[in-house]
């Protein structure tokens, strides 16, 4: 147990951080990392891994490794963007419910309860049924679907902090309510929530890939892990590696994010 509390992160966390740094680089400057143009069509269709194409080629002869590297940006954008949206929306509702009077609180929380009664995937599908598909709409849909659970967490945090001595002190010093919310309540409520948001990034990334997989996210031919898997599904009888590699990228990313998130969680809990 002492290892979890010590300052130096364990090996698994270091490995996860290195992989996430690599993903961040792939998202920012894919042209420096990828060996080929992700859209360049080649003569060798569905080729097995080789020196020229380390992860083989797809049904149009495009390099699978390069497409995975270029697809990182979409995956990270969906994962982090959606969670950011849930976080902002959830914090607004949660603080409102946590600090408002009983009427405001019960109205907000009833809405949150209604939202929580749906699986997030279904909520996202409803949003897409109204707005249509595409990368931005998928991001919005997943982000909106995540708002209720964040709202509940932020409200619980706010309720705990509302009566804390330092909030009373700030009130005693004559700070206005909005100032107290922005300077004292939000920063203290958000720290534990940020840790949970880290883990939420993993779930949101998978949800984004799932939407792309069923054809409601990023449209082809743009490189996207979910779309690649959906295409690979049709060629499983001829090339199994095409179906393995993009999924491996998603799984490694989610595992890394979860490992880092759990480590942060243990650290914040140990500090208290």
């Amino acid at each position: 147990m002492s290892a979890a509390v010590s300052r130096r992160p364990p090996v698994a966390v270091l490995a996860a951080l290195v992989f996430l740094a690599f993903l961040a680089a792939s998202a920012l400057v894919p042209q420096w990392i990828a060996p080929h143009d992700p859209l360049a069509i080649g003569p060798h269709v569905l080729a097995a891994p080789s020196a020229a194409h380390p992860l083989g080629t797809d049904e149009n002869g495009r390099d699978v490794l390069s497409r995975i590297i270029y697809g990182t940006r979409e995956a990270l954008l969906l994962g982090f963007g959606a969670v950011a949206l849930s976080l902002v929306g959830g914090s607004a509702l949660g603080v409102l419910a946590g600090l408002g009077n009983r009427f405001v609180e019960s109205v907000v929380m009833r809405f949150v309860d209604i939202g929580l009664a749906f699986p997030e995937m279904l909520l996202a599908l409803v949003v897409i049924a109204v707005t249509g598909g595409g990368t931005t709409n998928a991001l919005m849909a997943i982000g909106i679907a995540g708002i209720p659970s964040f709202a509940r967490l932020v409200r619980a945090q706010t309720l705990g902090i509302r009566r804390a001595p330092f909030v009373e002190a700030a009130r005693g010093l004559g700070l206005s309510e909005p100032q107290i919310v922005v300077r004292h309540i939000l920063p203290n409520a958000i720290r534990p929530i940020l840790v949970l948001a880290t883990i939420g990034v993993g779930t949101a990334t998978v949800a984004g890939a799932a939407l792309s997989f069923i054809g409601l996210g990023t449209p082809p031919p743009a490189p996207s892990w979910g779309v690649m898997l959906s295409t690979a599904r049709n060629f499983l009888d001829r090339s199994w590696w095409y179906g393995v590699m993009p999924g491996l990228a998603i799984t490694l990313m989610v595992v890394s994010v979860t490992v880092v998130g759990r480590w942060l969680q243990r650290r914040t809990e140990a500090r208290r």
Partner: peptide
């Protein structure tokens, strides 16, 4: 548990399809 809970279910399905249906 961590890996299974992290992987997208459709990828798990693709792996199972590759192994048990096409393999």
């Amino acid at each position: 548990d961590l890996v299974l809970a992290s992987m997208p279910s459709f990828w798990l399905g693709i792996l199972l399809l590759s192994a048990f249906s096409y393999g």
